[in-house]
Design a binder for these strands. Structure first.
Lengths: 137, 137
DNA sequence: TTAAATGCAAACTATTTGCACGTAA
DNA sequence: TTACGTGCAAATAGTTTGCATTTAA
């Protein structure tokens, strides 16, 4: 299933329309790996010709999140970022410039979620590594 | 060094005053383990008699964070929580009720930060486990 | 055709700021 | 004594909402 199929199927299943605004927001998130903010998405998709208002971008992000096509990334105070990679995964964040890099860190292996303290049922986990990127050494 | 010494020393070092407002905010964070929001701190410290305004709580939190006595915990959209436990540590968050529990998970051991992708210098890391707490099974 | 989505502007929430007054050192 | 901190209210930033208009299916 490719990404175009994803949105077709997921949206149709819930009886939701695939509008140019929603499609452009999703396509934008699929095309980039920098976990953009609302503002960044808005600017990017309206670069050539205006396609979506700010309210529509917020609305599209909400809907896409509800159907499970995208997710939020919360790593910096007051900054909500979005990501079309929905599976749990690890992140590196540069403490100087704020750059965020996805980590595919097999070193970590699978953690034994059944060894959590009593009363907690873990379903998934993510690691956040803080440090400096190559530009900020 | 006890916690009272902490604030005395850290604040004095930077030439900052320990006011009743600042002290009550810090003491409140030291006394609880639920990673409260600004609103929760405000209500708690003003329960008996009014001691601090909202602006002063924000101000105190900013100062305490700058001197390194407290830190932010960002796990939920639009909700900034605070913690007097400043060392990197792991968290469990209940996907239903939002409860946050500190994890002292020795199972994890020490991750080899020197095996990060080229160009990234990791300094510390934290794990976030999502799932359900005992009340939300 | 028509229920659902957009776009604008107004509303709202969380946080920050300016400034007169108060107070810790 | 006086520079620093507080408290109020106004300002700001990010996000949500109401409603008339437009549009995807």
């Amino acid at each position: 299933m490719n990404n175009s199929d994803s949105i077709q199927q997921q949206m149709k299943e819930k009886g939701l329309r695939i509008t140019p605004q929603r499609y452009s927001v999703y396509a934008n998130l699929l095309s980039r790996y920098d976990h953009p903010t609302v503002e960044a998405i808005l600017q990017d998709i309206n670069q050539e010709i205006p396609i979506a208002s700010k309210a529509s971008v917020y609305s599209a992000l909400t809907v896409l999140r509800e159907v499970g096509l995208i997710r939020e990334i919360l790593l910096q105070e007051g900054i909500t970022r979005y990501d079309a990679k929905i599976e749990p995964h690890h992140h590196f964040i540069c403490q100087d410039c704020g750059a965020i890099v996805d980590l595919d860190w097999s070193v970590l292996g699978d953690l034994p979620l059944n060894q959590l303290p009593k009363g907690l049922r873990g379903e998934n986990y993510e690691l956040t590594v803080k440090g400096k990127c190559e530009h900020c050494f």
